[in-house]
Structures are given as structure tokens and as C-alpha cells.
């Protein structure tokens, strides 16, 4: 199909750096982290004691930040950020929020509604 604006989706297939180098080939995080789960540096681990990729992920977690944001700011696929953050959680360097639950509480929806109306 040719859209009138051309086709900008082509570059998704472009060759790219091997994404799993940063995780030493691991593709499965040990802890499931939602895209929008928030993570935060606990201060328990000094970055110097970590490998470069872990330290660079940790450096992005100074305030609550989503997994998606860590991935974007590291210019890595989400799965890579997940593996690194899951490692950091396991050693206590990072804590994580509850993931958005599969069935959102009505009370949460009402808070969103009030918040949006007051924007």
C-alpha cells in the first residue's frame, strides 16, 4: 500500500546494533516489569561497583521513572532495560512500584478523572 505521505515505517527493518550485548545475551528479565512500572534508585549500591550498563541504567533512576523511559534514555529496546533493571532490583540497587494492575481499580479511574478535569 502506498499512502499519500509515503512510507515511513520502512526503517523498522533497518539493520541495528545487536541489542542484547548490554545484557550479555540475556533476553528474559528475572522479574517482570511493566512498561509503565516505576523504578527508583535506593542508594544501596555505588555505581562504581556495577558494570557499565547497569551503572548507566541506575544513573537514570534518581527519581521515580518508568521502565519505558529508562529504555528510551539508554537508546535500548525495552527488553534490555527490563533485564538490567531486574538485575538492579535483585541486588537491591533499585526498587519498583506496583505495576498497573490488569483490572484497574475504579477508584484509580476516578482519581484520573478528577486530575484531568483540574488540569
Amino acid at each position: 500500500m502506498t499512502g499519500s505521505d509515503g512510507r515511513d515505517d520502512e526503517d523498522f527493518d533497518a539493520p541495528r546494533a545487536r541489542p542484547y550485548t548490554a545484557t550479555k545475551g540475556r533476553t528474559e528479565p528475572q522479574i517482570h516489569l511493566d512498561l509503565a512500572a516505576l523504578v527508583l534508585n535506593t542508594g544501596a549500591c555505588h555505581p562504581d561497583t556495577l558494570q557499565f550498563e547497569h551503572a548507566s541504567a541506575l544513573s537514570l533512576c534518581g527519581s521515580p521513572v518508568s521502565v519505558a523511559e529508562v529504555a528510551a534514555r539508554m537508546a535500548q529496546p525495552v527488553v534490555v532495560a527490563r533485564v538490567l533493571l531486574s538485575d538492579l532490583i535483585r541486588i537491591g540497587a533499585v526498587s519498583s512500584s506496583q505495576a498497573p494492575s490488569d483490572s484497574l481499580e475504579t477508584q484509580l479511574l476516578e482519581r484520573v478523572l478528577i486530575g484531568l478535569r483540574n488540569l
Binding site: G3, D5, D34, A36, P64, S95, Q98, P100, V112
Partner: peptide, 22 residues
């Protein structure tokens, strides 16, 4: 899993914006 105090984190809410190209 260790419980986390709710005031440490805001509650994250995901909303999807979908639709055609352009």
C-alpha cells in the same frame, strides 16, 4: 515482594494512542 510505600511512587497509568499513519 517488599511492599513499597505509596507516597514514594505516583500511580502509573497507561493510555494508548492508536490510529493510522499521519
Amino acid at each position: 515482594m517488599a511492599s513499597v510505600t505509596s507516597d514514594l511512587y505516583p500511580d502509573p497509568v497507561k493510555i494508548i494512542i492508536a490510529g493510522g499513519f499521519g
